[in-house]
Simulated scan of single mutants.
Amino acid sequence: MSAPVLVEKKKLANPPLQLHYLGDRVLRQPAKRISRVDDDIRKLAKQMLQTMYSEDGIGLAAPQVGIHKQLIVVDCEPDEAATPAIVLINPVITKASRDTCVIQEGCLSIPKVFLDVTRPEVIEVSYKDENGRPQKITAKGLLSRVIQHEIDHLNGVMFVDRVDNTLAMNQELSKNGFSANAVKPV
């Protein structure tokens, strides 16, 4: 049995993986389920975490680094060395609360763009951990939001696809060099 994927929470001058940005087709392709959790998957999770910390992120999905696998990494406390990140393999939302909340979201694949998104407040997620063991987590608050945001990436959905205020979104995207044509409302 291997240990959890542990990575020093620091910025690297040259992160191991390259981010893809809104408008890149790779972000719109659904990710494939991971059939075997092995050292390659753990290595990918470690590289994703290193890349996420280097880019000041709190969540990252494999499609964002051009890899079509159902793997996400989440760390809502990147400044807390003692709090481990969570690696979710083949995550599935099994329950979502009727109660929703509106919070501003951003995305490493759409730098400097922050917009309001409505999502369920509490979710239950089934997934496999970095050792291939089935896990279940009930997430609320920021953790719930980040997991939902990253699972969207696994389905080719970007957070801007969920923004209701089209005018604000178009202004923010334009201001930061992105095309509103890359948005695919869900």
Results as ranks from 00 to 15, higher is better:
residue 67 I to M: 10
residue 47 Q to S: 07
residue 85 A to Y: 01
residue 93 I to C: 03
residue 3 A to W: 15
residue 176 N to F: 02
residue 117 V to Y: 06
residue 46 K to H: 08
residue 35 S to Y: 08
residue 38 D to N: 09
residue 5 V to Y: 02
residue 1 M to W: 10
residue 37 V to T: 12
residue 48 M to V: 07
residue 135 Q to F: 02
residue 117 V to N: 00
residue 61 A to N: 05
residue 39 D to N: 11
residue 108 L to I: 03
residue 9 K to N: 02
residue 161 D to G: 06
residue 33 R to T: 13
residue 158 M to L: 15
residue 66 G to E: 00
residue 49 L to Q: 08
residue 84 P to V: 14
residue 77 E to S: 06
residue 33 R to E: 14
residue 64 Q to L: 07
residue 101 C to I: 04
residue 119 R to A: 01
residue 88 L to Q: 08
residue 168 A to C: 08
residue 8 E to L: 13
residue 46 K to A: 12
residue 146 V to P: 05
residue 108 L to N: 08
residue 176 N to W: 02
residue 132 G to V: 02
residue 164 D to T: 11
residue 126 S to I: 10
residue 145 R to H: 07
residue 150 E to V: 01
residue 55 E to K: 15
residue 118 T to K: 15
residue 17 L to D: 04
residue 63 P to F: 06
residue 90 N to Q: 07
residue 51 T to R: 09
residue 146 V to G: 06
residue 30 P to V: 12
residue 155 N to Y: 09
residue 88 L to C: 08
residue 163 V to F: 09
residue 39 D to W: 07
residue 68 H to K: 09
residue 63 P to T: 09
residue 24 D to T: 09
residue 99 D to F: 03
residue 130 E to R: 12
residue 92 V to L: 11
residue 100 T to F: 00
residue 93 I to T: 05
residue 46 K to S: 07
residue 60 L to P: 05
residue 24 D to W: 00
residue 133 R to I: 07
residue 173 L to V: 11
residue 140 K to Y: 13
residue 156 G to S: 14
residue 176 N to C: 04
residue 27 L to T: 03
residue 28 R to F: 01
residue 21 Y to S: 07
residue 162 R to S: 06
residue 184 K to E: 14
residue 138 T to R: 09
residue 76 C to S: 13
residue 125 V to S: 06
residue 137 I to G: 10
residue 145 R to T: 04
residue 20 H to A: 08
residue 28 R to C: 00
residue 66 G to K: 09
residue 185 P to G: 05
residue 59 G to W: 06
residue 61 A to H: 08
residue 39 D to S: 11
residue 139 A to L: 14
residue 164 D to R: 14
residue 47 Q to A: 10
residue 142 L to M: 12
residue 26 V to Q: 10
residue 134 P to T: 09
residue 148 Q to Y: 01
residue 67 I to N: 03
residue 131 N to Y: 01
residue 134 P to F: 05
residue 129 D to S: 09
residue 103 I to N: 14
residue 153 H to P: 07
residue 134 P to N: 13
residue 139 A to G: 12
residue 20 H to D: 02
residue 163 V to S: 03
residue 63 P to I: 01
residue 140 K to T: 12
residue 125 V to M: 07
residue 153 H to E: 01
residue 37 V to E: 01
residue 131 N to E: 02
residue 85 A to V: 14
residue 6 L to H: 11
residue 27 L to Q: 05
residue 186 V to H: 15
residue 142 L to P: 02
residue 75 D to T: 11
residue 177 G to Q: 05
residue 160 V to T: 15
residue 131 N to R: 13
residue 28 R to W: 03
residue 139 A to C: 13
residue 92 V to S: 05
residue 15 P to C: 03
residue 52 M to L: 11
residue 103 I to C: 12
residue 146 V to E: 04
residue 128 K to S: 11
residue 133 R to Q: 13
residue 120 P to Q: 12
residue 164 D to Y: 13
residue 156 G to N: 06
residue 52 M to S: 04
residue 14 N to G: 04
residue 75 D to Q: 11
residue 79 D to L: 06
residue 61 A to M: 04
residue 95 K to M: 07
residue 82 A to L: 12
residue 6 L to Y: 12
residue 92 V to P: 01
residue 89 I to R: 05
residue 114 F to D: 02
residue 169 M to A: 14
residue 175 K to V: 07
residue 88 L to A: 10
residue 93 I to M: 04
residue 26 V to F: 00
residue 82 A to M: 12
residue 162 R to N: 08
residue 28 R to P: 00
residue 19 L to D: 02
residue 6 L to W: 14
residue 83 T to N: 11
residue 60 L to M: 05
residue 50 Q to K: 13
residue 77 E to R: 12
residue 37 V to M: 05
residue 80 E to H: 15
residue 147 I to M: 03
